[in-house]
Design a protein around this nucleic acid. Structure first.
Lengths: 211, 211
DNA sequence: TTGGCAGGTTCACTATAGGAAACAGAGTTT
DNA sequence: AAACTCTGTTTCCTATAGTGAACCTGCCAA
């Protein structure tokens, strides 16, 4: 080894970081993912375009893959890098919370236009907020202003037929089984167009921090 | 394909990933970082242990660095991978996207145990993944192993009746209109207990990057 | 047993990444 | 201007990543 590595080492230590690169369990991790999906090396080869032998060597840490190879892996397997790099250390994150809501047993919040029924409201700290809504409104002008809130919303019509007004689009007519996904900071409002009040299921993302 | 990957597959497809490798602006990005810190190639060489020439070639995309080289980079420069990979592109906070899916017009992914229908799959970059599932399985043992994936899941029974098996609880019987919210890294599996196949609506959180 | 066959590893070879040194250009100093 | 210095690029060579084929090893069917 050439003499000037001493200096490098000195610098590295002085800078207060780990003297050496950790063993990089990438191969191990890849194997885990492969087995978890019950893929053979051949399958992965097909998906990624890398040779079966190459994959074998990567898994057994006989080689350090080129970055283009890593790219092929993450693309072909549909995973992302963090996932590939996350050390195999166990993820103690499995909390296994759950919250059951029987039909009609949610928390009701009636308003003139909507009647919301919050589902799974036992559970705090969740990333989505599901609720069932009975749509009372029949006319757009029953709303004083757009409904809007941070995040995204998914909505499916469970009963009846609705018209969805949105700030940037023409109104959409949705009937039972139809669904839509939209950015909910775009103004929106629902009215029933069926005889009976329509019922929709909505799921909103929790407005957590920026991405 | 084994049962437990169904949902993973669904998630992957839904995430709207680009089919092929982008040109990999890694070199460009590295140069940006280097200049931003007013480092010379020599400086970076000292810090990382990579040769000046190698660094030059990486910056000019003349070579694709080995993964160990990338490791040395992120260690030596004290940056993390996302930082290196994140293209300098700004995130202009999309507004007002929407994606309609008419009844039955989702993207179908049949498997022995479940038949998934991905909803709103036009939209990439969304925080939730909604899909409708016809539950074919009648017996728990039709699953090879628990279905599990990062994040949280909300589920409502649209038709029929199901039994939900989970890793940490006794099985639950759910019928039309019932819903449940749970941590989906807890193993879970659904079977129909009604005559006909049951139909459920699920919404998963997107397994965004590591915490 | 035999003969596939499928999944994985090893081998021999080619392509390419990484390193040392030479080169090239832009200031500085003399 | 020449000589020096600091920067980034290029050259040439060696180490190693990537490949296809050969090679193992169970496993299953005839």
């Amino acid at each position: 080894m050439p003499a000037n590595t001493d200096q490098q080492t000195a610098l590295r230590i002085a800078s207060g970081r780990k003297p050496f690169v950790e063993p990089l369990r990438l191969g191990e991790r890849l194997k885990e993912i492969r087995l978890a999906n019950q893929w053979t090396l051949e399958d992965v080869s097909q998906r990624t375009g890398l040779a079966r032998s190459t994959l074998s060597k990567i898994e057994n840490s006989q080689i350090s893959p080129t970055f283009t190879a890593v790219q092929k892996l993450i693309n072909g397997l549909g995973i992302d890098l963090p996932q590939l790099l996350t050390p195999p250390r166990v993820q103690p994150r499995t909390m296994g919370r759950r919250d059951l809501t029987r039909q009609g047993e949610g928390q009701h919040h009636p308003t003139p236009t909507y009647e919301h029924e919050l589902l799974s409201c036992e559970l705090a700290q969740k990333r989505m907020i599901p609720f069932k809504t009975i749509v009372r409104a029949r006319q757009f002008d029953e709303f004083n202003e757009w409904v809007r809130h941070d995040g995204e919303e998914f909505l499916m019509v469970l009963e009846g037929e609705i018209r969805l007004y949105t700030e940037f689009y023409e109104p959409l007519q949705l009937t039972r089984g139809d669904s839509i996904y939209f950015d909910s900071d775009m103004g929106h409002a629902l009215v029933s167009v069926s005889e009976d009040d329509a019922v929709v299921l909505s799921v909103c993302t929790r407005g957590d921090s920026a991405a």
